[in-house]
Design a protein around this nucleic acid. Sequence first.
DNA 1: AATGGAAATGACAAGATGTCATATTATATT
DNA 2: AATATAATATGACATCTTGTCATTTCCATT
Lengths: 214, 214
Amino acid sequence: MPTQTFFNLPEEKKKRLIAGAMKEFSAKSLNEASISNIVKNSQISRGSFYQYFEDKKDLYFFLIGKFRYNYRNLMLKSFQEKDGDFHEGYRLFSEKYIKYIMESEKFGFFENMYLHMNYQINQEARVDFKETKSQKLPDGKRIVDVVKRDNLKLTSENELIDILRYILSMLNDTIMEGFWKELTVNETQELFLKRLEWITYGIAVPEEEEVTYD
Amino acid sequence: MPTQTFFNLPEEKKKRLIAGAMKEFSAKSLNEASISNIVKNSQISRGSFYQYFEDKKDLYFFLIGKFRYNYRNLMLKSFQEKDGDFHEGYRLFSEKYIKYIMESEKFGFFENMYLHMNYQINQEARVDFKETKSQKLPDGKRIVDVVKRDNLKLTSENELIDILRYILSMLNDTIMEGFWKELTVNETQELFLKRLEWITYGIAVPEEEEVTYD
DNA sequence: AATGGAAATGACAAGATGTCATATTATATT
DNA sequence: AATATAATATGACATCTTGTCATTTCCATT
């Protein structure tokens, strides 16, 4: 986390630094990027940088947090709009989410982020489904409350959370694949939908129902 | 790819170099590892290193290729043993695969590999399901020939390949998660099986069959 | 023994990181 | 207004890395 000193900075200087960092991280991955370039870009001294951030990673994760899609709200809205239908809700959500990432003016930043995403970066970018009721959300709802469970094979709320989490990580993996293979937004979306279908309906032919006559 | 010069090296020197590199990559990630340490470890000169490898990555991917599980055979065997059953075959395969990775004496190497795995590393470690018939395999079979498709909702061989690939990448993601959360082999295996179940049988309650009497 | 090509070597330039003594600026206190 | 104190800013520096290259060493073949 950046230091208080950083947050106290005059807006202008903060912006200059963020812009200089985004320039570097849009052209290079976290590992290839250099602090030297960032301080040159933003015209601040090397010593100051270390007064604001612990290291390169500290700054990087701050930027991810700042620019990542705040998707909790979008997710809520999507599921609500589709009356809590799991499959339709996720479809709607993914459409907007993928567009945001891949059509953003921060394309380069996200591209590098996804192409070099490892588990740690993944964690930094993820959503918390275990929201407590106390957290302030629009109309106080949690995502798990908005998803209808009656047409899902689920035994507990925790299992729903597990699945929602897994689908989200699958979505991020698919976007990563999209960047890697230079797919269009639509192609990426279709790849995701195919996988979502597998998971929703299964890939095995359902067992014949045992029918008893009595 | 290492140069011919490297492959021509006397066994002893080659081993020394590989051991020195494994020591470094077991303690540090690809990015943290340094060539300086590796040449120190293996008592070869810096100049020689660059005569054998293009850079650090070149060596790293060579090592991944060398030590990764050759899983094509294990997969074939697993599916054959379970009479081509998709779910049971993958269950058997994953059991041995996870054990190999997580109980290996190369634990540190794999741990770093998985924790810092990005799409490129993932690609390097993956299996090719599009084997041609001409490739020499035990009894000349391809994996896709061994998996029974009649109880799967599949329209084409290509879709089977897509699914096999996806499950494998899901397995690798799960192992990554296992390393990250420091799960045991069994816990990791169970996490995988839960997800495999979702994908195999779906998470939606099947639609009621329309029954027509005539 | 002489020759020539392959392989090995380590010094070096270029550039990166994190630190620290010192300078500058802002804030509080008399 | 003058002074004291705390907070920020600065860039030189020690240390480490990387990739290159002129030179040297090795070795097979005349």
